[in-house]
């Protein structure tokens, strides 16, 4: 777990007057409930999405981080950015209830079938509207887990970026990020405005309070179409996806193994099994 160092928070608190208010845009994906596994639509080869969508848990970390950064900066605003079908706001309401101030939702039938690049084009255009100092996203979503959208957004917006953040501190026009690496982590500094993608566990997301849930109902959600964003329908959706699924196949199943109920002796079977495998 990453602690927001109390001494640092104190220091930032003291510099408060010097810091300008911070505007943070957070990408939040609304996804089908992962507890309800879903299936691929035979005809469209896409995940079926016919139930209410919820806030992707991966994005709750970005929302919490944004709230804490704005708090540490002594003021500002958290703007949610989402692209979802059917004017879906259920997941946005959860994030607004956590404390975000407002949301921009892009919902347009022309977006069906968008690949990650198409999604990034739409999100980048929506983020541009908010003119944030910092853009946050999760390193990867829970349902599509392409993991390329954040970096694509950064490139489209001409922003520097730091991916895989496990802690973020913002001060004096820069962010200092601990970035997960194969071996440990790197300290990375990056000037604002920039994009940072956060890993699960960067902060502990708060639960929306009752007061927050009530307040969320009246917070502004600006719903826009791709035409509003000046995006051409040919560059997104099915038309824009430069890839095609040629087949969906069942993977060969593993052969059923030997299952035994432990009655106090099962460990012996593990020992003999490891013996057979020449591990011991």
């Amino acid at each position: 777990m990453v602690e927001f160092h109390t001494s640092l928070a104190w220091e930032i608190g003291h510099k408060r007057r010097k810091l300008t208010a911070m505007k943070v845009a957070v990408c939040v994906k609304q996804i089908p409930d992962p507890a309800d596994p879903g299936a691929l639509d035979e005809a469209t080869k896409c995940l079926k999405r016919d139930t209410k969508l919820i806030l992707d848990e991966s994005d709750s970390y970005g929302v919490e981080m944004a709230l804490q950064l704005v708090d540490a900066a002594g003021g500002g605003e958290v703007v949610l950015i989402s692209m979802a079908p059917n004017s879906e706001v259920n997941g946005l309401r959860t994030a607004l209830a956590m404390g975000a101030d407002q949301a921009i939702l892009v919902s347009d039938d022309a977006l069906a079938g968008s690949d990650a690049l198409g999604t990034a084009k739409v999100l980048a255009a929506a983020i541009q509207r908010a003119e944030p100092d910092l853009v946050l996203a999760a390193t990867e979503s829970s349902d599509g887990y392409t993991g390329t959208v954040p970096e694509q957004i950064a490139e489209l917006m001409g922003l520097p970026s730091v991916t895989f953040a496990k802690s973020i501190v913002a001060a004096d026009g820069t962010v200092n990020v601990q970035r997960q690496t194969e071996a440990g982590y790197d300290d990375v500094t990056c000037p604002l405005p920039c994009l940072v993608s956060v890993t699960a566990g960067v902060v502990e997301p708060r639960y929306p309070s009752f007061k927050g849930i009530m307040a969320a109902k009246s917070k502004p959600v600006d719903e826009v179409t791709i035409a509003d964003l000046g995006i051409d329908a040919g560059s997104v959706g099915w038309a824009g996806a430069g890839q095609e699924i040629v087949a969906v196949e069942e993977a060969p199943a593993r052969e059923a193994g030997e299952i035994i109920e432990d009655e106090g002796e099962a460990y012996q079977r593990i020992v003999s099994f490891l013996d057979e495998l020449k591990v011991i």
């Binding site: 990650a116 990034a120 887990y145 390329t148 970096e151 950064a154 490139e155 690496t181 996806a241 430069g242």
Partner: peptide, 22 residues
């Protein structure tokens, strides 16, 4: 990898070409 996804995402925008992932 941590570095690889950065390269693929940025390159995809520069070439205006998608990435096939995982």
């Amino acid at each position: 990898t941590y570095g690889g996804r950065d390269v693929a995402g940025r390159l995809s925008v520069k070439l205006d070409a998608p990435v096939i992932t995982n």
